[in-house]
Design a protein around this nucleic acid. Structure first.
Lengths: 221, 221
DNA sequence: TGATTGTTCTTCGTATACAATTATCGCTTA
DNA sequence: TAAGCGATAATTGTATACGAAGAACAATCA
């Protein structure tokens, strides 16, 4: 109800509900709010220093996005992504990310390719410096950028949401695959910059497939 | 605030926000709230006989689902699905519905197959009776049922949302393709009941592809 | 032990208030 | 008449309070 708000949430000019939603997503993905944790409206309102109204609106959207489960009259709890869930998500990603790669290959402007190669280069450096956190960030950035380049907002938005959930689960277990997935990323960017949609699609499929297999091992193998 | 609420929204025991969301979706898809229409909170609150709070929560979710666009400090307007949008949606559906068909073929229980064939039979009768509205309903039911049978909730939820948008756009233009799409539906159910995932996937791809082509013709051809 | 009751916590919805912003409309002026 | 300007109205964004209903859990009683 007073000035501790910007400190905790950031002094943007976005509606509070959006700031709360962003903070909530971040808190959940980071493990700050672990799966199963009860999220009472009062508690979140206090955590973020806002009233209950923006919290409630943020919770509804978080539910639609699959981050929380709301039981009527009982409130919200952080969702518990099971291995079944992660398997289901990968099944969808295996269809969508190859499509995104194909579209990206067909539509990428030279500046897009330059930008993708920039990410690859930064990742190479981060790998040399053993900065795994940074490598993971760049991994994410690369995928999201390809989604944007695809030029299909529905595809981008859906795949992005799925990708967020994958990040969430992997952060909770422990990402191991990052290092050698970069060979695949290089091939993927090469395919996109070549403009060969078929090639980009098949490389992306192999890439997501490998990630999916690794996920299976990590989560219940 | 008084007793005109259950009359307009239905006396379910769901939270009002969910009832409002359902009514809002329905109003938008039916064309009751046409694209571009301003949806002020007070107006919706009056329409549904509730206060602003449940309306606001419903609007946030409707925005996440792509039915309305919310401009900060300026309120919500019904989204305007352009031909670009519908093209983008079909591009995604062409990947997801075949996957759903494959999974359904691989997992369908005998009761599922019976249920699907029941829908087909009802559709045959409705077609004989020239009941086009009913045919459209059954069309929708068949697709949604296959999504359920796929057993992948993420896939089902995403594809369902996309399908709703397709229905919306087609209702606004005028569905013509319904009659001869039922040959394809029969083939699809046959493929699913045969348990042949490859076949089901390719039939579904052809089916969505045909719908996509028809959509292109209708919307800007 | 097992069923019932009662207490407490929380959500859900309503109502209200008010600041900030945006839209509207009439008025002035060129 | 057309354009620009300013006052006014309408709407959102946020906060707060309150009552009702439901769920969980403990205490009571048969």
């Amino acid at each position: 109800m007073d000035t501790d708000l910007p400190a905790k949430i950031g002094a943007q000019h976005l509606p509070l509900r959006d700031q709360v939603l962003a903070a909530l997503r971040k808190g959940i993905i980071s493990g700050d709010y672990p799966p199963g944790e009860r999220l009472t409206e009062d508690r979140l309102a206090e955590d973020f220093g806002v009233s209950r109204n923006p919290v409630r609106e943020a919770l509804r959207v978080a539910e639609a996005e699959g981050f929380v489960v709301i039981l009527p009259r009982r409130g919200a709890v952080v969702a518990s992504p099971s291995s079944a869930t992660i398997h289901d998500i990968f099944a969808v990603r295996e269809r969508l990310e190859p499509l995104a790669a194909r579209l990206a290959a067909e539509r990428a402007a030279p500046s897009d390719v330059t930008s993708l190669r920039g990410v690859l280069e930064q990742a190479r450096q981060a790998t040399e410096n053993q900065n795994l956190r940074r490598v993971a960030e760049l991994n994410s950035a690369l995928h999201l950028q390809i989604l944007e380049i695809s030029g299909n907002p529905w595809l981008a938005s859906i795949a992005k949401a799925l990708y967020l959930h994958v990040q969430w689960v992997f952060q909770l277990t422990a990402e191991v695959r990052a290092p050698h997935s970069w060979d695949e990323h290089i091939k993927l960017v090469d395919a996109i910059s070549s403009g060969d949609g078929d090639l980009a699609e098949s490389v992306a499929l192999a890439h997501v497939g490998a990630a999916s297999a690794a996920a299976r091992e990590t989560t219940h193998g």
